[in-house]
Amino acid sequence: MEQFTKHTGVGVPLRRSNVDTDQIIPAVYLKRVTRSGFEDGLFSAWRSDDTFVLNNPDFAQGSVLVAGPDFGTGSSREHAVWALMDYGFRVVLSSRFADIFRGNSGKSGLLTAQLRQEDIELIWKLLENEPGMELTVDLEQRTVTAGEHVFAFEVDDYTRWRLLEGLDDVSLTLRHADEITNFESTRPDWKPAVEPA
């Protein structure tokens, strides 16, 4: 996983609440068995609408998505994170994220920064008044800078540490392989197991 310390890029105002992962990438795009190339599915239904924000050339190169509350609800598909990242997004700002989406983001290196809804509203206005405006997201300081405004955001300490270090979860856990083996020896015999293939 790539390290994340600070990112500066064009902010994209997405004035919608409850953006579920079916909207981020519809199921029809989930049939691939690779891990890249999902950018064409990102917001696919909305991209056929000329007024959709990513169809505005000022925002098309955006890398910081500024979304309404309850972003990433619904299906667990990690393809939603891959589609955002394949398109070029590195950060999503929202006042509330769905749990599975937020977890998936942290695993792939997409920063989900939680701001107060009133700050999101202000950033929306700034971006709409000045399309193409860049936002700077500083993970060390936990701040978003938009022009002369600085906003604090929340991200949990552990996810922040992993993103700053670019650490992969599996290797972190395998440092504790002995503890896993010890735990396994204490599991009751009657717990179910299947016959492997």
């Binding site: 977890g103 998936n104 695993k107 979860d169 599996v170 856990t173």
Partner: peptide
């Protein structure tokens, strides 16, 4: 509970998950 694909890989490899 539902998990993402990175977590699927994590469970396949370790039979565990780090969770808050």
């Amino acid at each position: 509970f539902g998990i993402g694909t990175s977590e699927v890989e994590h469970v396949l490899a370790t039979q565990t998950l780090p969770l808050k």
